[in-house]
């Protein structure tokens, strides 16, 4: 099983609902976030294009944050997700510095936190991650890459996509439909 997310940049309106929904679902403290929105505008008026991306931890297959963690707090979990065991984390910040996507933050309680793909609180119960389930434009897809019939697999087959900073060699599991 390989969990993955695909986000349609053509439909995302950048509303940030995914950000608040994650905060309320996962008790992310105010002032922090596990996901965020990037808006890229390219061109000169009136020849313009916007790409909007809802970004979060990419649950990299080759995750530098796992590699550099001195305690094993950052580790791989079911379905290739990358998680942090809070009570093993010493808060050294190495993983934060190692993530090319700046996907991690230091929780005010000291440990490092980031997107979990809502693994324990939702996905294992058969629900979509909070951000996916709330998105008003339904532009996010979540599922198992190994299952050819999952939403993600299907949409990745049908559409052109990209991942972020492939040069970093992290093999992200969050895909952007373009």
């Amino acid at each position: 099983m390989r969990y993955a997310m695909a986000i349609d940049t053509k439909k995302c309106v950048g509303c940030s609902d995914c950000v608040v929904a994650c905060q309320t679902e996962n008790n992310v403290p105010i002032g922090y976030c596990r996901d965020w929105i990037v808006e890229v505008t390219d061109g000169t008026y009136p020849q313009l294009e916007i790409e909007i991306r809802s970004e979060r931890c990419n649950h990299c297959e080759n995750a530098p944050c796992v590699r550099c963690c001195p305690t094993g707090a950052s580790h791989y979990e079911d379905g290739g997700t990358v998680l942090v065991t809070h009570h093993k984390c010493i808060g050294c910040g190495a993983c934060i510095a190692s993530c090319p996507y700046d996907a991690r933050y230091s929780h005010p309680d000291g440990y490092v936190d980031k997107c979990t793909f809502c693994l324990d609180n939702r996905v294992k119960k058969g629900e979509d991650p909070a951000c996916v389930s709330v998105c008003p434009t339904k532009c996010m897809y979540f599922g198992d890459l190994d299952d050819p019939n999952s939403d993600v697999s299907r949409v990745l087959k049908m559409r052109k996509w990209k991942t972020l900073i492939p040069e970093a060699g992290t093999k992200p599991h969050v895909y952007y439909l373009i």
Binding site: G14, S16, V19, G31, Y32, C33, W36, I37, V38, E39, V40, T41, D42, G43, T44, G93, I96, A97, D102, R104, Y105, S106
Partner: peptide, 19 residues
């Protein structure tokens, strides 16, 4: 001009505006 911005107010002082 290319403009790349975070619009959702990611204000985490440890990673923004830079690490």
């Amino acid at each position: 001009m290319k403009e790349e911005i975070i619009t959702s107010g990611r204000m985490n002082p440890y990673i923004d505006p830079h690490l």
